[in-house]
Design a protein around this nucleic acid. Structure first.
Length: 489
RNA sequence: GGGACGUUAGCUCAGUCGGUAGAGCACGUGACUUUUAAUCACGGGGUCCUGGGUUCAAUCCCCAGACGUCCUACCA
């Protein structure tokens, strides 16, 4: 809305002529015996159901919001919409009688009404309800956005999502898909014996990832608490406690930047399977993605950022070292640090002079290689220093037994053969590479010392997954109420 | 954080090489008993994001700010 004087304000100096007119209509309706904000209305079905049960002459009761109106004089055609669909109303003066028809004319676009009438098909082939009776359910005091273009202003669409949802079908569809995707993930995992659990979002010490947390003060205990950056360490405690297959799909919070692909609160699926490993994670992920694509989209092929992506499993698997050699030459890992830096700079990758071979390698992967992996790909056997919570490969203690699942040039889902050795875990925390150092969670180490079963685990960024499956190019398009900078009052 | 661009009627957008603005939808009045982006006629509606500056005159030019979008850097 424009910017300062909008809808939510109703103070006398700020009303506009549209609102005043609607209030006048509301008062006239009230005088005619129509309560402007009605009570429950019993429907014979929702609009989708009514359409599906169509029969000529079938008597139905429907409720919804008036979206458009075509006034032909003695007959008015209107579109009524609820959460499931739209249907045309045929409102006729003779049918209703002069007074009821005159009252109907006091309705405005955006009002909610309930109607009763018989179904029929108009000459032009439009399924309709011939209204015998109607009742006012809720008067809208503000105009809905433009009926054809909808609400386009990106800022308004995020700040006033209700207007976006009222007027933009693509937006409604996208969020319905998000809901369906999450529902199908749950139902798939439950069918495989996983249980959904809840672990603390308010934590005395944030762990499970390297990220800046949100801090808050807990008055009752007079201590600092942190919004979780990941649920991982708690889910693993549950493995220790005897839950064999657990998952949690809920919010993480990170006190970091805000852009096209980052929102400070975002939804992640984390999943752990006792007695499993990286391979079991690969299997569950392939099965889950295929199920979600089929049940929600009806296809495994999606278009994302101009690329056609085929989610038909199995997905190809390639080792981190092979990717590096493929890009930088077979002798890449034999180069000295200086040679490696020179080669990286030559390839257009800027390197900090402090970096060792490992960090230069990571920069090359991040800057040159990851974005070229468009089709779903498991990148495996990654240097262990980057991944303190994973076990190393049985045949090579320098490599972590993990995969990074990359799609459309972006990392979508990391999965590990989880570290369950408390001594190795403590060492790994202490020896992390780069600047991503986590504080050691002593209670977590204690839990490991009780014996955590060997396990596979993974984390899937739900928002980005939904973006991919719905072709959205901003995370704000898949989060109902994304974070925006507050407006000054 | 750095850079580019944007902000005009309730909504979608034009526009003014500096002389306070237009269209479509919506709204109001009238016509119309099968329309569906209904149609036709007439009409009302604006702090041109905010604050400074230049100027006889600023919505337009300059400076600063707010918010947003895109690019770029960083975390997923």
């Amino acid at each position: 809305m424009s910017k300062e004087n909008n809808s939510t304000e109703s103070s006398p100096g700020n009303t506009n002529e549209y609102r005043e007119r609607r209030i006048a209509n509301m008062q006239a309706l009230e005088k005619a015996g129509y309560a402007p904000f009605g009570t429950a209305f019993s429907r014979s079905d929702n609009i989708k159901g009514i359409r599906e049960k169509y029969e000529e002459g079938l008597k139905v009761r429907a409720a919804g919001r008036i979206m458009t109106s075509r006034d032909m004089g003695k007959t008015i055609f209107a579109d009524l919409r609820d959460g499931t669909g739209r249907i045309q109303l045929f409102v006729n003066k003779k049918q209703l009688g002069d007074d009821v028809f005159a009252a109907y004319k006091l309705l405005d676009l955006g009002d909610h009404i309930g109607v009763e009438g018989e179904m029929f098909i108009t000459r032009t082939g439009e399924m309709s309800i011939r209204v015998d009776e109607w009742t006012l359910l809720s008067k809208a005091l503000l105009q809905p956005p433009e009926k054809y273009h909808g609400l386009q202003d990106t800022e308004d669409r995020y700040r006033q999502r209700y207007f976006d949802l009222i007027s933009n079908e693509e937006s409604r569809d996208r969020f319905n898909k998000r809901i369906a995707i999450m529902r199908e993930i749950r139902s798939y995992l439950e069918s495989k014996g996983y249980v959904e659990v809840e672990t603390p979002m308010l934590q005395p010490q944030p762990g499970g990832a390297a990220a800046r947390p949100f801090m808050t003060h807990y008055n009752a205990l007079n201590c600092t608490m942190y919004m979780r950056i990941a649920p991982e360490l708690y889910l693993k405690r549950l493995l220790v406690g005897g839950f064999d297959k657990v998952f949690e799909m809920n919010r993480n919070f990170r006190n970091e930047g805000l852009d096209r692909t980052h929102n400070p609160e975002f939804t992640v699926l984390e999943l752990y399977e006792a007695y499993g490993d990286r391979i079991s994670m690969k299997n569950i992920l392939e099965g889950m993605i295929a199920h979600v694509c089929d049940s929600v989209l009806g296809t495994k092929i999606v278009t994302y950022e101009g690329n056609e992506i085929d989610f038909t499993p199995p997905y190809k698997e390639v080792s981190y070292y092979d990717l590096l050699r493929g890009r930088m030459g077979d002798n890449w890992f034999d180069l000295s640090v200086d040679e490696a830096r020179a080669a990286a700079e030559k390839a257009g990758v800027e390197c900090d002079p402090e970096w060792d071979h490992l960090l230069i390698t990571r920069e090359i992967y991040d800057k040159l290689i990851e974005r070229t992996l468009i089709q779903p790909t498991f990148v495996i056997r990654i240097p262990r220093q980057f991944i303190p919570l994973a076990k190393t490969c049985v045949d090579d203690p320098e490599l972590a037994d993990v995969f990074e699942f990359v799609v459309g040039g972006k990392e979508l889902c990391p999965a590990y053969t989880e570290q369950n050795d408390p001594i190795a875990q403590r060492d790994a925390f202490a020896n992390q590479a780069g600047d991503e150092i986590e504080k050691i969670d002593e209670d977590f180490i204690t839990a490991l010392e009780c014996g955590m079963p060997p396990a596979g685990g993974m984390g899937l960024g739900i928002d980005r997954f939904v973006m991919m499956l719905t072709g959205a190019d901003a995370i704000r398009d898949v989060i109902l109420f994304p974070q925006l900078k507050p407006r000054n009052q």
